[in-house]
Amino acid sequence: MLELRLVQGSLLKKVLEAIKELVTDANFDCSATGFSLQAMDSSHVALVALLLRSEGFEHYRCDRNLSMGMNLNNVSKMLRCAGNDDIITLKADDGSDTVTFMFESPNQDKIADFEMKLMDIDSEHLGIPEAEYHAIVKMPSAEFARICKDLSSIGDTVVISVTKEGVKFSTRGDIGNANIVCRQNTTVDKPEEATIIEMQEPVSLTFALRYMNSFTKATPLSNTVTISLSSELPVVVEYKVADMGYIRFYLAPKIED
């Protein structure tokens, strides 16, 4: 028996909007730790890891570990029927091939049940070891989204370079090239507007902008984004999900031929 009640149901709506472009089908895993997902895009270039810790739910009952295969487009269709202020409860019985999404309006005057068919998904689970990153950039998520969008009108790839000067996003294309430098800036009114660069050593990596732009679908979840870079590892682009967890996007770099 599974029963997860999330008072801030809009978080789940935003999570689905953040990942459904990148991943078509995925297994949602429930355990005592929380509600999680790990999935790769169809070309195995990017990976998304979601964790919503059990403590973040108003009610969290998961009698035994359960893996539920879902088509994310269909989940998104279901969740779009929930109001932004609705409380969302996920329910599944042991051995059932369906999951039920229950939506309650804040004043309890409307209660809706949406039952969705589960599917068998044969997905590969990857072990991601803890890593030391050469540079970690924390910046406003809207700023990062703007940079990715702007650069993708010029080129297909972005070079992200971190030096003592700041973090530089560069691209080049048929019509020309572009460089955007963001310097560390902690003298702002609100902490979420700060750009903070922790650098152990300079790093420069090249990535496909198409994936970066897809990751920025998570922007409504968090005012800030954290970008972790190491010269021999995929970049990690992380958005916090309130104080209950995170969405991490891993993207493999492009290398010189």
Partner: peptide, 14 residues
């Protein structure tokens, strides 16, 4: 020109 690496080249199956 650049070659796109795969994420599975970095992380092992569990």
């Amino acid at each position: 020109t650049h070659v796109q690496l795969s994420i599975t080249e970095f992380y092992r199956s569990t």
